[in-house]
Design a protein around this nucleic acid. Structure first.
Lengths: 227, 227
DNA sequence: CCGGGTGGATACCGACCGTTCTGTTGCTTT
DNA sequence: AAAGCAACAGAACGGTCGGTATCCACCCGG
């Protein structure tokens, strides 16, 4: 997942006026990697867009590979920050999970939505590559851990299992949105996630008006250390 | 989705003994594109592996782009053939849908599973590209149409909607399996699909069959031309 | 005033890219 | 035997790749 919503997290305030060469390179590389792919983006295009010299890039990052890793690392952190902030605006754990796919939909709707850099990066590199996949899995694990914690707080029977399923839905929606350019895949995936969440919480009806069994699972909202 | 199971569909029998240069080029290109990515695979490597001359490649395909499209077209057809044959072995529509993810799991378990060429191709090319995305969507639509028909035959309330959800689960599983190299994501996705199918068929144990108005949609199992 | 470090400009490196070219096999078909 | 033709080998094209070296213009603390 990649390319965070711009509005929040201006990182360093001074960057707005005097962005360092490093930041300019990171921004340019991020944009070009996302839009055109990593292999299809040359060093020259990056330094061109960043307005720096090639020497500066190699002084700072050492190699294109290291630049790629730096971009993924940074982009992952920004994306996770945006994602978690987006869903944590909701009040209850259930509402937070329910706002995952509306958040994704907003992301999909941006005109510069290019899919998930991590997924695309793994896809366009040799499949015996290790480093990129490790970085991607780390990113994924972080997001899934958060979802799992929410699932547990929401009273899901098997929180890890449910989080895994939601993660698959997220990946699928991200990919489908990239291919089709249709943000409404998020709605479809969101309804699937809601149904799975309903089932995992033991109440199959969408609106909890007609509660069938409802034994416990009402508590647990508290005492949840975020990790 | 890409890279079909080898055992069925030997295409032309004579190819086993005298594979034409075209077939050798297609096979080599397919393998290298899948394993190393399209942009990372040079013409030299393809003709090297195919054992043909560069001239032959350009006489037959005209350009690398055209070769890429030919590979996607062919690989898509092979994959769809394998996929549909795999799930159609089951007897009932419900069983056919239930065998989607076991089939994918077998695919994921191959040691030369490299994800979906279509998804990877879109991901590593400029996002304003049109042709690749069109080819990918065509492939996807074909598969989804088949799933939708099965969903309708299985008595799902909203077959197109369910098929769409299953498609997202498939894409998510394909991507997750590529990144994690863990074929069991197919199990997780499969259980999600089964739960959604249960719910869509109204026999989800607890769901009290809250039908809306929609009186029809019960027939239509027949007269469904797939492609 | 000086000296050192940061970063820009530019030319260059060997390697490889996709593509085209020339020329040569070897098997058909006449 | 002659001609045709698909496929071969291989060199070479202009261009770009990732990466390096050189030189120069600042800027800033002493």
């Amino acid at each position: 997942m990649a390319h965070a919503i711009p509005q929040d997290a201006p990182s360093h305030v001074s960057d707005i006026f005097h962005p360092t060469p490093r930041d300019r390179l990171m921004n340019a590389a991020t944009r070009l990697f996302c839009k055109y792919g990593i292999n299809a983006t040359g060093i020259d295009a990056i330094v061109d867009e960043a307005g720096t010299a090639k020497t500066t890039l190699y002084k700072i990052f050492g190699s294109k590979n290291d630049l790629v890793e730096a971009v993924l690392e940074s982009e992952g952190k920004i994306w996770r920050g945006w994602f978690i902030a987006s869903i944590e605006r909701a009040k209850t754990p259930r509402a937070k999970i329910d706002s995952i796919f509306p958040a994704l939909k907003k992301w999909f709707s941006e005109d510069d939505y290019y899919g998930c850099v991590f997924i695309n990066a793994v896809g366009e590199h040799p499949k015996d590559e290790t480093r990129l996949r490790a970085i991607t899995m780390e990113h994924k694990s972080f997001v899934l851990a958060h979802v799992e914690q929410l699932a547990r707080a929401a009273g899901a029977a098997k929180p890890a299992f449910l989080a895994h399923q939601i993660g698959i839905l997220m990946d699928g929606a991200i990919v489908a949105a990239m291919v089709t350019r249709d943000p409404t895949v998020a709605d479809t995936a969101g309804k699937a996630a809601a149904a799975l969440l309903d089932e995992a919480c033991g109440q199959s009806a969408k609106k909890p008006r007609r509660r069938r069994i409802q034994p416990s699972s009402r508590l647990g909202k508290e005492s949840l250390s975020v990790a």
